[in-house]
């Protein structure tokens, strides 16, 4: 098996090839990632739908419900991200359990991934994974972020459509949402409309939007038990035509460059004699290292 067979498999939508390619992208080095992305970059055209919001509001449940509905209009793939434990680095990837029922039935590819402590709500190689799913012929790629707080807004750089999911009874968390996530939503979903205070919550969020800089952002209520009002959500998704490719790629370019610079410098920092530096002013040392950039860069490019 070689990388060309793997790429052929991806383009044919073969699940084993897609799955293995994603593992390679997550687990190997930049060169290998570049190899794969080079060969698939030009293929596919997907609508990337971001599903974000605080923990437990029903993101996975909503995806489990909407995926089969969307699959009547085109091929659907799902990427769902869970947080890693800061202690062990391990992770329990629990999003799948809420979607499992419909996946085989509708032939939907779904991948769970750990954020491996990458900050912002996505994982370090989400961009690459999305690219693979796109090349595999997906019309819709649904991305579930880590259950997020106000600083987890990376999804807005990646998705074509960012859906912020809320639920009644969030308490203080709604304040965090208002301060951080209000700007990133292209649409707000109030899930769990079966709950008592649901209509008050919708009114509350609508009022906050009216005094924000995006007063026309729609708010859609959903009941994920009865599937009530899902048709208007699906309609909204189908009508949405914004593409976010430039922002998505700028984010990726930044990330690649940051990583490369970090590699150059951290390798160098590891290699210098620590004893000589311990008692010196770190600002001065950092200046010295930066001045030596060309030398370091050449050393990097040589290998």
């Amino acid at each position: 098996m070689n990388i060309n067979d793997l790429v052929k498999g991806i383009l044919n939508g073969d699940k084993r090839s897609i799955a293995r390619a994603i593992s390679i992208v997550e687990n190997s080095d930049d060169e290998r990632r570049k190899d794969i992305i080079d060969k698939i970059y030009d293929y596919g055209n997907s609508k990337i739908i971001g599903i974000t919001g605080p923990p437990g509001v029903g993101k996975s449940t909503i995806i489990g419900n909407m995926a089969p509905m969307l699959s009547k209009k085109g091929k659907v793939s799902i990427l769902a991200i869970d947080p890693a434990s800061p202690f062990s680095g391990g992770s329990i990837l629990g999003n799948r359990i809420r979607m499992q029922e419909n996946l085989s039935k509708y032939d939907i590819y779904m991948r769970s991934t750990s954020n491996r402590l990458y900050e912002g709500g996505l994982s370090e190689y989400s961009w690459d994974i999305i690219k693979i799913l796109e090349a595999s012929g997906s019309d819709f790629i649904i991305v579930e972020t880590v259950g997020s707080g106000q600083s987890d807004v990376d999804i807005m750089n990646v998705a074509d459509l960012t859906c912020v999911i809320l639920a009644p009874g969030l308490g203080d968390e709604i304040q965090a949402v208002k301060s951080g996530m209000m700007e990133i939503g292209d649409v707000f979903i109030m899930n769990k409309m079966d709950k008592e205070d649901a209509y008050i919550s919708i009114k509350d969020i609508t009022e906050s939007l009216q005094i924000s800089n995006k007063p026309d952002t729609p708010v859609i209520g959903l009941n994920s038990i009865t599937l009530d009002n899902y048709d208007s959500f699906i309609d909204f998704i189908l009508k949405w035509n914004n593409k976010n490719t430039e922002r998505r790629n700028i984010r990726k370019i930044r990330q690649i460059i940051n990583e490369r610079i970090f590699t150059i410098y951290s390798g160098y920092i590891e290699s210098i004699d620590k004893n000589k530096l311990l008692d010196k002013n770190p600002y001065g040392i950092a200046d010295d290292i930066m001045k030596n950039f060309d030398g370091l860069k050449n050393k990097y490019l040589e290998k």
């Binding site: 062990s88 391990g90 990837l93 769970s112």
Partner: peptide, 9 residues
Amino acid sequence: RDAGMEVIY
């Protein structure tokens, strides 16, 4: 998970 694995249930 506590042993550092990524676990799907």
